[in-house]
Structures are given as structure tokens and as C-alpha cells.
């Protein structure tokens, strides 16, 4: 069947090889107008933004001496073990623990809300909308605001930081997980539905096992982000190395501040390498 239909086509291509098809791009006359309009709009927005943020580079040039004095005071970093390094390392561990608990303890909440807020796993349209709204709320309130709220309940300290991260991370991770569930191949879930499995069984035995690699990748990414967030939370009294940095700035001990920042740098690199290592192993 196929040889007969193929031969004439091949023959025709051979004989007409010299008279080639002319390359004519279809003209789009309005394109340059659109491009110019978009460019003008972007430039205009930047002009307004520069005005709105008091963006004046000359201030930076004039004020370089203040900055140089500040940085000069920080050098050399204070390397005394008892006064700076030991408290710094201890506080860094606290920062790490805040980030860790803030991530892991939000897993159950994020998982539940993600399953309710993904179109392919949500039991009902109304539940879907409510879950989406709850996630949006937790995501919209910055973790630092949650920290300030919890400080009024449980007092200053790392516990308030953990609670703040749990709340904010539930919102972000729930949203990221819901999206990765929606992107997953719907086939296995449909197969189980035709086999008579109920909704919970479909999610537990098709959807969730399909998204495990994406979930773990996103979890590690959030751990990375949360460790860095917990530094900032330290600034508002949630403990950890952020608190020490804040204290050393307020007491003009810039050399201690620099030491603490260097410790933070090491922490960030270690966490980053660790999560990259896990993700590599997961992909293999």
C-alpha cells in the first residue's frame, strides 16, 4: 500500500529540485508599533519608579566616606573565641534549627492544603476556592509580620520564629506543591478511577507517588529559603544569629558583626551544597 503512494512524491521532488519555493515571510505591519509602545511604557514606568524611590546615585558618591568608615571599623573581624565566635556558632545553630522546624513542621499543613487546592485532587470546587484563599493569605502575610504577632503571644525567642516560618511556609509550599500536582500526568489517576478507586485512594496511590521527586525538590528549596529567612527573623527578636548581628550593630561592635556575617556565609554555603547534593541523588 505505501510504496505506490510514496514513489510519485519522491519523483516529483527530484524533477522540481531547481525551482525552489520562494522564502517570503508574512509581513506584520503593526509589529513595530507594538514594540515601540511596549518599550516606551517600560521606560516610562522606570522614570516613575526612580522618582518614587528617591534614586539619586550622586548621594552614593558624596557619602562614600561614611560607608568606608563603617566598613573600616569592621576590619579586622573580631576572632575572639569566647566573646564572638562561640556565641556566634551557637546562635547559628539556633538559626538552622528555626529554619529546619519551620520547614518540616509545615509539611502536614502544606500537604493537606495542596491536595485541597489542586484542581485534579480537590474534592469540590468550593473546597478548592477556600483552600486557595487560605494559602494566599499565609503567603501574603510576610513571615516577619507573623513573627511580630507570635512574639506578643510566646515572647521573644526562637519559638516565635519557628511558628512564623510554619505559617508563611505553609502558604508558599502549599501553593508550589498544588501547582506541581496540577502539572502531573493525569493518566494514572484516571486509570484508578476507572478501576473503582475513590478520590482519596486515587490521590494516595497515583497522584502523590507521581509527584514525590518534585515535592522533595521544592521542600529542599524551601529549607534553603527558610534558613535565610530565619536570619531576618532574628532581627525582630526571634533569636539566632540575626539577633546577634542586630545587637553588635546597635552596640557599634562592627568587628563582631563582620565575624557573624562570615559565619552566616559559611552556613548558607553549607545548606546550599547539602540541598544540591540531595537533589542530585534524587535525580539519579
Amino acid at each position: 500500500m505505501t510504496p505506490q503512494t510514496l514513489t510519485p512524491a519522491v519523483a516529483r521532488r527530484d524533477t522540481t529540485a531547481k525551482s525552489r519555493v520562494a522564502l517570503v515571510r508574512p509581513k506584520k505591519p503593526l509589529r513595530w508599533i507594538t514594540t515601540t509602545a511596549v518599550a516606551a511604557a517600560v521606560v516610562g514606568l522606570h522614570a516613575v519608579a526612580i522618582e518614587g524611590t528617591d534614586f539619586k546615585p550622586e548621594l552614593l558618591v558624596d557619602g562614600w566616606k561614611g560607608m568606608a568608615a563603617f566598613i573600616g571599623d569592621a576590619f579586622p573581624p573580631d576572632l575572639s573565641w569566647e566573646k564572638t565566635i562561640r556565641p556566634g556558632l551557637e546562635a547559628t545553630l539556633v538559626t538552622l534549627w528555626i529554619g529546619l522546624l519551620g520547614t518540616t513542621l509545615s509539611v502536614p499543613f502544606a500537604l493537606l492544603l495542596a491536595a485541597l487546592a489542586a484542581e485534579n485532587t480537590s474534592p469540590h470546587r468550593l473546597v478548592y476556592q477556600v483552600a486557595r484563599s487560605v494559602l494566599s493569605f499565609f503567603r501574603a502575610v510576610p513571615d516577619i509580620v507573623f513573627a511580630l504577632i507570635f512574639v506578643t503571644a510566646v515572647g521573644l525567642g526562637p519559638f516565635a520564629g519557628v511558628l512564623a516560618l510554619i505559617c508563611h511556609n505553609t502558604g508558599v509550599m502549599g501553593k508550589l506543591w498544588a501547582e506541581s500536582m496540577e502539572e502531573i500526568d493525569a493518566g494514572p489517576q484516571e486509570a484508578l478511577r476507572t478501576a473503582g478507586a475513590n478520590r482519596i485512594q486515587q490521590v494516595a496511590n497515583a497522584t502523590l507517588p507521581m509527584v514525590v521527586p518534585q515535592f522533595v525538590g521544592l521542600l529542599l528549596y524551601r529549607f534553603d529559603v527558610n534558613v535565610r529567612s530565619s536570619l531576618v527573623l532574628g532581627l525582630v527578636g526571634a533569636g539566632g544569629i540575626g539577633l546577634l548581628i542586630n545587637q553588635s550593630i546597635k552596640s557599634f561592635q562592627f568587628d563582631s558583626m563582620l565575624t557573624h556575617i562570615l559565619i552566616v556565609l559559611v552556613l548558607i554555603i553549607v545548606v546550599d551544597q547539602f540541598s544540591a547534593w540531595i537533589r542530585r541523588r534524587l535525580a539519579a
Binding site: D185, G187, P188, E190, A191, L192, A195, G196, A197, N198, I200, Q201, A204, N205, A206, P209, M210, V212, P213
Partner: peptide, 27 residues
């Protein structure tokens, strides 16, 4: 397109055919 769960074992995928007979708590 077959529609099995690639990360699960063959046995676990086959068990999923019986989900309608298994109580939700045990599945």
C-alpha cells in the same frame, strides 16, 4: 499510555487494581 505509577513496584501497581475492595484506611 499504560498509566502506571513508574516510581512504584510492579506489585504495588497491580494491587492498585484492587483498591475498590480495600478499605480507604488500608489503601
Amino acid at each position: 499510555k499504560i498509566h502506571l505509577v513508574p516510581r512504584r513496584t510492579a506489585l504495588d501497581n497491580v494491587c492498585a487494581g484492587a483498591l475498590a475492595r480495600i478499605p480507604t484506611a488500608r489503601s
